[in-house]
Design a protein around this nucleic acid. Structure first.
Lengths: 229, 229
DNA sequence: GTTTGGCATATTGTATACAAAATGCAAGTC
DNA sequence: GACTTGCATTTTGTATACAATATGCCAAAC
């Protein structure tokens, strides 16, 4: 038979709990450094401690939580150094994705991206920042998908979640926004030209700009030294 | 006071169990696809099911295990496609490490690597394959360390473990060995010249060669389709 | 002969109970 | 007053008990 090999999957409690916690962390309900009391969370999530602790282990593996023996789990608080390293890695991953994508992209893919780019420019014109962010993320995810390497995609997503947990708000002025939109335009051109090297360079620089914007704001608030992994 | 901020860490049972299991998997005692019976393993490791299951979650996060709801855990069995993707990613990681390392390497680092290179060539001359492999790994780890990005190192290590769990034995003839040793020599030269681009290229090609050797043997035995992540 | 249904068994999933460790506070000491 | 010390409380770590699900087997039906 082989029904396309898609076994239906009911979420098990640890998975469901992990998903919920992941959302709470990336959405900023649980802030970096926050201590997670097991009993308290059990009540809130409606699960017992055993599955919750398994969820903790999963999230710790993703680098969203740190678990200190006999002292519980807390939301990871990245130091500026940690953030720098994470961004550096992210740049490499994005660049690699771009390189692969340029080699594997189809004309349909490019058409789809051009639509997204148009939507993004519209959002930019309207000054609609939330929509811009959403489309921005969609574009980057799309490039990653085109790259066609699940191992890369997995790593990318995980690291992305960790960066989101930073709760950064870069000082995003008009000039930088303009710049970012222009960079996206260049990216799609590079992709259409199947120029992997150029695309890689663009993506790496694109992320470097973001990194700098974030690190600047982090320097200002100067978070008191977070933990390394 | 601040005693250099190194809290002594007694291993908790889940961590200890995970470490032991990880070793069993990478050393090939537990083979790809092997089903892990909880009760059985509990007895063998001398822990109860709760910590063992937390260990499972950790290893699943590392991609060494797959957990099927209500059907237990088993050692991951990578299909040829999965292996291809993992190697592709590994190449990118190594290449990136090389690029960073070239930018950050010190003369002392290079001196140390030259010593390792000499040892490696000696092992090669003697035909001592195990020693060669050990030194080989040491060199690659060293480059990674010089790169100085813990996020990268962590990702590298994890993926490396997954690849080791493949239990591949590439057909490693004299010619390929010779080639590999020569490539290592070039790497150190590139590093000494602080030529990140060249080093990246060398590392990527170096890993491509390995990948091809492994995939060739995988094709021969033709593992019946493993699982994706 | 193959398939289906139902049971017994084995295995995993979850909750809870107990043990061990950390934390906070108050009394005592210098 | 600052620093220990010891105890009560809280919190985490581990084991185990119970529930839910999957597995394997055998008999019955087609």
């Amino acid at each position: 038979m082989d029904g396309s090999n898609i076994p239906i999957t009911r979420l098990t409690l640890p998975e469901a709990a992990a998903e919920r916690l992941r959302a709470l962390i990336t959405e900023g309900v649980l802030l970096p450094g926050a201590k997670l009391n097991e009993r308290e969370l059990c009540e809130q999530l409606g699960v017992s401690r055993t599955p919750l602790r398994e969820a903790f282990r999963m999230l710790a593996g993703d680098g969203l939580l740190v678990q200190l023996p006999n002292r519980g789990a807390q939301v990871v608080a990245l130091s500026r150094e940690d953030a720098r390293h994470a961004f550096e890695m992210m740049g490499a991953l994005e660049g690699f994705a771009g390189e692969l994508a340029a080699a594997r992209v189809t004309d349909d893919d490019i058409a789809g991206l051009r639509v997204l780019q148009a939507e993004m420019e519209a959002a930019h014109a309207c000054g609609d920042l939330p929509t811009y962010y959403r489309i921005n993320r969609t574009i980057h995810d799309a490039i990653n998908a085109i790259a066609g390497n699940p191992v890369l995609t997995q790593t990318y997503r995980t690291l992305n979640a960790r960066l989101h947990a930073l709760r950064f708000r870069s000082n995003f002025n008009r000039a930088k926004w303009e710049q970012a939109v222009a960079e996206h335009r260049s990216m799609i051109e590079a992709l259409a030209a199947r120029d992997g090297l150029a695309l890689r360079g663009l993506l790496v620089r694109h992320l470097c700009a973001k990194q700098q914007a974030v690190l600047e704001t982090m320097k200002k608030q100067d978070v008191q030294g977070g933990t390394s992994q």
